[in-house]
């Protein structure tokens, strides 16, 4: 499945929710389900410090695909991270670099990417792409 297809899948999944509360409840449960990042990887070099919440991001290259693991101290932020990881999962660096992330806007969570939220998500997306650029040379 391509990144675009996985984005479509997420958009469809979220289209079931009629009101914001159901949508957020789903997001929260995704956040709770997200495997907790290995404590050893919760180090400062993996930390993306937002004003409101903190995000840890780690990336490994395995068989030409990038495996992201991430965590946040805020559960809603973590829910969005879970979606990001799902969309990017098993993708090659090239696919990630070329991807256009539209699903967050389409499922009505764009406000979480506003710089005023300062929750670390915008920096996390940038960082994910940076990893992809860095790993590209190793593939």
């Amino acid at each position: 499945m391509s990144i675009a297809e996985r984005q479509d899948e997420v958009v469809e999944e979220f289209s079931m929710f009629e009101d914001w509360m159901d949508k957020y409840e789903h997001l929260i449960s995704l956040g709770k389900e997200l495997p907790i990042i290995d404590e050893a990887k919760k180090q400062d070099n993996n930390l993306i410090k937002g004003c409101q919440s903190r995000v840890w991001l780690d990336a490994q290259l395995q068989d030409g695909k990038i495996v992201f693991t991430a965590d946040s101290d805020a559960i809603i932020t973590k829910g969005i991270i879970a979606l990001m990881i799902r969309v990017f999962t098993d993708s090659s660096p090239q696919e990630i670099i070329a991807s256009d992330l539209t699903f967050i806007d389409e499922i009505g969570l764009k406000e979480h990417l506003s710089p005023t939220r300062s929750n670390g998500l915008v920096s996390m997306i940038k960082q994910m792409k940076m990893y992809a650029i860095a790993f590209q040379t190793q593939v």
Partner: peptide, 19 residues
């Protein structure tokens, strides 16, 4: 986390500061 609370109660029209 304060951020999560702030996000949800904003949906209910309530403006507080978190952080």
């Amino acid at each position: 986390h304060p951020y999560d609370v702030g996000v949800i109660i904003d949906k209910m029209g309530i403006a507080v500061r978190t952080g």
